[in-house]
Amino acid sequence: MSPALQGLMTIVIGVVGCVGYFYLSNQFLDKVLYPPRGPNAGRNINRANLIRPWLFLFPALLALGLYLAYPVVETLRLSLTDRVPGGGYKWVGLQNYQQMMQEPKFWEAMRNNMLWLIVVPAMSTGFGLLAAQLTDRIRWGNLAKSLIFMPMAISFVGAAVIWKLVYDTRPLEQDQIGVLNAIYIALGGAEPQTWLTTPFWNSFFLMIVLIWIQTGFAMVILSAALRGIPEETVEAAIVDGANPFQIFFKIKVPQIKNTILVVWTTITITVLKVFDIVFAMTNGQWETQVLANYMYDKLFRADDWGIGSASAIVIMILVMPILVWNVRNARAEMK
């Protein structure tokens, strides 16, 4: 069967199945199990209302449990075991973690990830704040916004191709076709640089790609927050003789502190999961390894599920503080 046809059938089966499930299960509850008639009508209605939410929730809970909750536990278990040749698993305790800690590649990935975690959220939020503040004050601001926002729609892989062209290097005697080297040579640089293979700094050239993508996100959210600031506070500051910079840093920024924090953490999560950019541009060579790519390497190239799972758990542990913070915020908001 051709995949397209299979896809079409899946849509039909999926949609009909879902609607059918919800409709029939509700009908069953109301007509057969607890009909709101007869001597027990009142009790039946109450019972039906107790059960109904779970009918609505069941498919989603099943999928969430199976595809997100169970894997966390299973990955934890796998990280503490080794596969035995010929099938089966052997309990090895923390041995995978110990082995991982002894690998220089792991520490390289950790170091790079920390750099990414510092640089990318800071730069994206900074640029986003700048763009939000500036575009709100000019006539063609909305057009400017959608152009800065545009990279959000581009895949990490597409972005990798786009930026690889920017970083391209040709021998000195030829015309440079990468913008960066062309500018570098025009400004008097002696030798064209191979930006992506020079250790340490090459990580930053990879980070630029993600900053380029995430700035639009930060800008959109922060721009909405800036607009939500009460006019009176700004007007009062103007009357008191504050200059534009004081208004921005002393009046506006403190009022949107929470939103900035949200943007920061959201980008932090994206950074922790960043895989495609590194995979496509350097594949972790030249000391650009990051955790997510390290994990992919371990799982699918080295075929070492133990260490691969262990590194996935490391990512999870790094995400944990933000997870807890988010949950607490959400709960506080609901009260």
Partner: peptide, 19 residues
């Protein structure tokens, strides 16, 4: 349940690959 959904929002899908 709502809190759980918020929590699952940020679970890295890397964890789900092998299982």
């Amino acid at each position: 349940l709502i809190a759980a959904v918020v929590g699952l929002l940020v679970v890295p899908l890397q964890l789900a690959l092998i299982p």
